[in-house]
Design a protein around this nucleic acid. Structure first.
Lengths: 217, 217
DNA sequence: ACTTTAAACGGACTTCGGTCCGGTTGGACC
DNA sequence: GGTCCAACCGGACCGAAGTCCGTTTAAAGT
């Protein structure tokens, strides 16, 4: 990872000033040469396939390269590192969720009042994360990287905006972080799987927390 | 890591039922053979020394082993894996903080009202984590492991107990997780270092959050 | 002191992430 | 079509984590 600008996963979602009101999904990509683009999709398909067989934890870069019929160096050039590949896989699966809360029908989408959207967002997020917890946890090697991942920045901005629209008083930036932390994959997995807590209770926790954080007084 | 019971770092702090009211620090260890104990401290000292020279990120197991004058296998036998070694280093540095909130003077210690203790706990925790953020972040390879680390379980139980004593309504278990997440090393580091947020604001966020979570109505 | 055994030891070995660099090629511009 | 170059490709190579297993030893019992 010494290349000048390894065009990793994707930017966007939150590019310019902090008051950018129009959020966009994390899809766009910087324009790749034909062969590179072809190899990119091949690699993602190979990785996705291998993952469904061996599990995300056992996914090796060399295996992906071989399965895609390219050299190992190519994988690293394209995705930077193992985590980059996993994040790219995730990003693809996130499109659905993003579409749902950015432009989908109420109560998640923009045609519902902010507070209602937030209440709907929690369970949607929690379930999405639970569905992909294996991949998400495998992609979390570097604890700081989460805050850089476009999809997560998008979530944060989204929640922050909704909190403001809902008239929440206080440091909405921090409150958004707090709210998102309550739906964190690792936490939810720990609670539900390792400690046997029913998912309902976790979701109830979200609503309860939201009620307290969104107070307008 | 195939050994039957690699007696890793230490247990205790939260052993039995969930209503164990007397918390104890995370110091005790299962009793080691003389040579093993000797090598253990040698290893920790060597690791600590190497870390202060090269940084936690560049600490290699082989270097630690060599510096301590033992074989590589010995390091792994004792600490299980790299993370185990780092956690052991951390555990040692945590004793001070634990003593402060378990048995120290008010407002952190037991001679202050619960809510006041919680308010004092945040800044203490945040600063402690910032002082050791390098080690803490390096030790966080597996996102699920945090919830298993004795020191973190102790913190959680501590906060949960204080919330109850303060008369907080709601799911105190979840609320404790939320509160601790607000002081999480990775988050605080991201906010203060990468985003330039002043530490005061993060601490203010703790107090604000606590006020909302500890509501008794 | 002697035996015994579970525990500890060490270092060769395997595996995998990540780097490097010489060779190849898409595609823009003439 | 020809030239040119930035971007791409691949696989040898490196470093470090973690495993394995034959050898050594602390220490408990006799």
């Amino acid at each position: 990872m010494t290349g000048p600008i390894p065009p990793l996963v994707t930017t966007s979602g939150t590019q310019g000033g902090p008051t950018d009101l129009t959020l966009t999904p994390t899809g766009e990509r910087p324009a790749l040469r034909a062969d590179a683009a072809r190899n990119r999709t091949r690699l993602l398909e190979a990785a996705s396939h291998l993952m469904s067989e061996c599990g995300a934890a056992n996914l090796t870069m060399e295996a992906v390269a071989t399965a895609a019929g390219v050299g190992k160096g190519t994988v690293f050039r394209r995705f930077g590192d193992r985590t980059g590949l996993l994040i790219a896989l995730l990003d693809h699966r996130e499109q659905q969720l993003q579409a749902a809360f950015l432009s989908g029908p109420p109560p998640l989408g923009p045609d519902a009042p902010a507070l209602e959207r937030l209440h709907a967002f929690g369970p949607a997020l929690i379930r999405h994360e639970r569905d992909h917890h294996e991949l998400i946890l495998a992609a979390r090697t570097d604890p700081l990287r989460n805050y850089t991942v476009p999809a997560n920045r998008l979530r944060h901005t989204h929640v922050k905006l909704l909190l403001r629209q809902a008239g929440a008083k206080g440091d909405t930036d921090l409150l958004a972080h707090t709210l998102l932390a309550a739906a964190d994959t690792a936490l939810v997995h720990h609670l539900t799987v390792e400690r046997g807590m029913p998912l309902d209770r976790v979701e109830a926790g979200w609503h309860e927390l939201l009620d307290r954080l969104a107070r307008t007084s």
